[in-house]
Amino acid sequence: MPDNNRILELYKEQYEKPVMNDKTVFEMKQRMKQGKEEKRSMKKQKVYKGCAIAAAVALAIMILPNTSKALASVMGDIPILGEFFKVITFRDYKYEDERNVADVVVPEVTIADNVDNIVAEEGKKTAEQINAEIRDITDKWVEEFKSIMEDEGYHNITIDYEVIATTEDYFTLKLICFKALGSGYEEHHFYTIDLKTGKKVELADLFKEGSDYKQIISENIKEQMREQMAADDAIRYWVDNTDFPEWNFKEITDDTSFYVNQNGEIVICFNEGEVGPAALGTVEFIIPKDVVADIIINE
């Protein structure tokens, strides 16, 4: 249909013009969140129907964390987390006017009061440290939001959390910070706690002493980057870039985020702009078990 090509091109050109703005995209994400919450509460109603005691228990727990994502994970994982650790919503900050929306949920790691042993003791310290870090981050974000509210345009921030990747040994609290101030930006912070010791886990703790885990993991990440780039033209990482070699991802550091997923695999996480163009967003690499088999500490 050669005749139609020109027409279709004109049509297409016009068709493709509209794009959603930050504000409506943000609202869409909020609606999606709402959908998740409603879906989960529907599911729970089904599970607990006809069982008064269980329902009462569920309600009691529901009062604690009020985001459903965290709630769902926490509820599912109570046998593990519940020994000492709980993640609750510590503070909410909500603000909305015509141009500014802030929806900030600050999580806090807490320890059951009546537990008295070394792990709980250690856990308390860990929780305090993590909570302080989270408060610093969230305070900073809220301050920034307040300081630019009067400026022109739309400003949105959302902070939320998730309890992810719970294995028998670890749980990870993921703090999700999103802002749309002109353009969107998202960053994640991960805090992993060893349930057996109550201590915060650093990446180095997972490996045998003296092992070159940084290099081994970094090489694997670079391999994965190359594979992804070869498979999809739209994906670009800063690796093997000869024009700007100084941008290239070299090696993970002590500050690089990670968690351990349900399969026991280490997942390395990067924030926007760390290993590729910001448009790539936050990225995660699952490190296959066999890559680190020789250096990981086996429980």
């Binding site: 068709y15 493709e16 013009k17 509209p18 794009v19 959603m20 409506t24 609202e27 869409m28 609606r31 999606m32 709402q34 959908g35 998740k36 409603e38 879906k39």
Partner: peptide
């Protein structure tokens, strides 16, 4: 959004459609 715009020709309505659709898709 483009698909919606091609029918409703109105940014607010089109955004509303996408938001509503996204909500329903997640929920179901």
């Amino acid at each position: 959004y483009r698909m919606a715009m091609s029918y409703v020709h109105n940014e607010a309505d089109a955004a509303d459609i996408v938001q509503e659709g996204a909500y329903k898709a997640i929920k179901s």
